[in-house]
Computed example of a mutant assay.
Amino acid sequence: MTPFFIRTATPRDLQAISDLLRETWHATYDGIYGAARVSELTASWHSVDALEPRLGRLNSEFLVADDGERLDGMAFAAAGEGRAVVLHQLYVRPGCQRAGIGRSLLREIEGCFPQADRLRLEVEEANEPAIRFYRSAGFACVGSTANCCDDTSGIPAAVYEKRLT
Rank of each mutant, 00 (worst) to 15 (best):
R70D: 06
C96K: 14
A137W: 04
A36W: 06
L14H: 06
G100C: 09
E52K: 15
A9I: 04
K162G: 05
V159P: 01
M1F: 15
A75Y: 04
Y33H: 11
I101C: 01
E69G: 12
A77T: 03
Y29C: 00
R37T: 11
Y33S: 12
T152D: 14
A50P: 12
R135Y: 02
R135H: 05
E125N: 12
E52V: 11
L119E: 03
Q115W: 13
R57S: 10
T24R: 00
Q115C: 00
A27W: 06
D49Q: 15
W45R: 12
A158H: 10
A126G: 01
F76V: 09
Y160M: 15
P53C: 04
G102K: 05
L63K: 01
A16N: 11
T24A: 14
W25R: 08
H46K: 07
E110C: 04
E125L: 08
L21K: 12
G143Q: 01
E52N: 13
T152Y: 02
W45D: 06
I109T: 08
G143V: 05
G31L: 02
Y160N: 07
A77F: 00
A137M: 14
A158V: 10
D66T: 02
V64K: 01
L55Q: 10
L20V: 08
V142S: 10
S47H: 06
P94L: 08
M74L: 12
G73Q: 04
I155C: 02
P94G: 07
G143P: 07
R132V: 10
L90D: 06
R103H: 13
A65K: 03
A27V: 09
F139N: 02
G82K: 09
S18L: 07
S39M: 03
E69D: 08
E52A: 15
P3E: 14
L90E: 00
E23P: 01
R107I: 04
L121N: 00
R107V: 05
L21S: 10
Q89I: 07
A36F: 11
R83K: 14
A126Y: 01
Q15P: 03
T28Y: 01
L106A: 06
S18Y: 06
G73M: 02
A137T: 07
K162T: 08
F139C: 03
